[in-house]
Design a protein around this nucleic acid. Structure first.
Lengths: 332, 332
DNA sequence: CCATGAAATGCAATCGTTTGCATTTATACT
DNA sequence: AGTATAAATGCAAACGATTGCATTTCATGG
């Protein structure tokens, strides 16, 4: 493994000079610096990140906290954009371990151990003491799709998205709107708020039995909820699902009952996954702008890392867009 | 940031003793070691990975090389299982950067820079000189779904899977089997081999026009190919697609032509994505055993890392299973 | 030609661990 | 009790970079 010392030897200069030449300092004069850089290149030099981190206390490596399985397209996309954005800022991306040999996690400890410059919390149990401690601590942290007091957050515009979807359904003539929502969380509360607000705005009455608790990313739970809705006295004409994946469960449930979508009942998802556009009937959904969210998150994080004294935590909301599809039709 | 020196001071011992106590060496006697460990815990000590890496040349961090977007469920699953498996072996997982500030990648250099103990190549341009250099180099590397001479590889049983699918369709009465395959690669060649072999075995004639080149994970390309097949003189009764996602494109194309699936034409995918089971008609597919593949890959990698002298590269094949679905029906 | 100041360079300490070797302390045996 | 032996401990040198400070080099102007 070639190191600065080797380069110094070959070039007949000191290690300090090599360091300064390679790091683009002003000191070594241009010709010599260029020469050193060329030699370094030729010799296949790669700076040792561990040594650099040890000395400078900057690892140029950011942590990604992702507890769940990575089979949710929205999160996969987010993850990918985060990585791309991190790379653009010259950072690597390391997963922060959840558990090690079965023992539960102490995220703060793991981040310090690897000298990570900051962390993006993509998906986690937001009520766990461990995450809360991390968010409240002094390590630069950006949380996605959850809001903590005094911590940087980037959220999809769940409220606005829901409002837009409700309006969209209303324009198509729907007046009986049901909402199967996901687990209690900031996301769910925002969507509920948007749903209620827009219904109120449009003068749509929402009977209590039209609001059901389901689960995110769980087609079976959504199917059950839809069955319950259809068994009710006065079934809705349009059902909003927790997400696209769940929506597909709803689709299956309706089909099993010989209820046609969208002729008899319309369905609306959330996320805007690619498959939703390909399948038939295509899903009506809300496309979250994962790329924009990721860029914002990394921007916030970089600012927190580079300007720790002036940085003030912010909560950013990123708008998406309604994605029209065949599951939402007009009413008779 | 509390370090060994601080613990040493509080405990009235030397740094070496702290180090040995914490690393479970035999040296310090049990009582003292326990005391030191307890103090360390109390003081919130986290070992500095950078320092340790610098000294020991082991980072306990493995690289993941993933060039493409992470929106392919099979790869997402694989990635997740790799991470879980890596963690079980006490390793973190860091993405190996693809490009930095636009400049193309030199993977070898990036791996050395971070002192990564090894790399898992999940998805990459297997023909690029850069990947080939990495696979041929001395850094422990495991490649997934591609075969390099003298390098550890873990492959899904593409050949066997294809054979099983062909048999399955044959049992259902299909005799006109078409295959839209993905980009040229080891995976595609294996699947083609399996397809031809099993057809030959069963005495099924395969006209040249039944074999079409498509693309992986590209529903539109697959739809086009299926259209071409249907426009032919003697359309097949069953079409094998490059993967489930593409298969959905085929489904759409057939629907657009008012060809019913599976009554008129059957479809078969590959991957076994979860959505395929939820949607309607559900997809007939081949479920790749991502968990098993990931575990094998990490096992191989750990062996290569820990026993560099005795380790001999191997090519492992992991079998999956046929996933019956509604897109494959019997023939009249 | 020499004094002067700026630019270039090198020296050496440091970051937090690990570890071989020397030294101290404890243990056991005669 | 004295000695041989083993266990425990500490010292100090790495690992590969960065950087403040001292020193050298060099160009410039008087």
């Amino acid at each position: 493994m070639v190191k600065m010392k080797d380069i110094a030897l070959t070039c007949g200069v000191s290690v300090s000079t090599v360091s300064r030449a390679l790091n683009g300092q002003t000191n070594p004069d241009k010709r010599k610096a260029a020469y050193i850089r060329q030699k370094a290149q030729e010799m296949g030099y790669a700076p040792n990140a561990a040594a650099r981190t040890l000395k400078t206390r900057r690892s140029h490596n950011i942590g990604i906290l992702y507890e769940d399985r990575m089979d949710h397209e929205y999160f996969s996309l987010l993850l990918n954009e985060l990585r791309a954005s991190a790379e653009e800022h010259g950072n690597d991306m390391t997963f922060v371990r959840h558990s090690l040999h079965g023992e539960a996690g102490n995220y703060d400890e793991r981040v310090r151990r690897r000298s990570l410059d900051g962390v993006v919390v993509v998906q986690a149990d937001f009520n766990s003491a461990d995450i809360i401690r991390l968010a409240a601590g002094s390590i630069p942290t950006v949380v996605i799709d959850h809001a903590y007091e005094g911590c940087d957050c980037v959220m999809n515009d769940n409220r606005g998205g829901m409002e837009a979807l409700v309006s969209f359904a209303w324009q198509k003539g729907h007046r009986k709107l049901a909402f199967v929502h996901g687990e209690d969380s900031v996301v769910t509360r925002e969507r509920l708020a948007g749903f209620y607000k827009q219904c109120a705005e449009l003068g749509v009455r929402v009977p209590g039995e039209y609001i059901l608790a389901g689960h995110f990313h769980n087609p079976m739970a959504c199917a059950e909820a839809v069955n319950a809705l259809m068994d009710g006295q006065d079934p809705p004409t349009c059902v909003f699902c927790p997400d696209d994946f769940s929506c597909i469960g709803a689709l299956g449930a309706l089909e099993a009952r010989r209820i046609r979508v969208p002729q008899d009942v319309s369905l609306v998802g959330f996320d805007g996954i690619r498959l939703g556009r390909m399948m038939s009937p295509s899903l009506t959904s809300y496309l979250q702008d994962a790329e924009s969210m990721a860029r914002s998150a990394i921007s916030l994080l970089m600012d927190a890392i580079e300007n720790p004294q002036t940085h003030r935590p912010r909560i950013l909301t990123v708008a998406g867009s309604v994605l029209p599809g065949e599951t939402l039709g007009g009413t008779k």
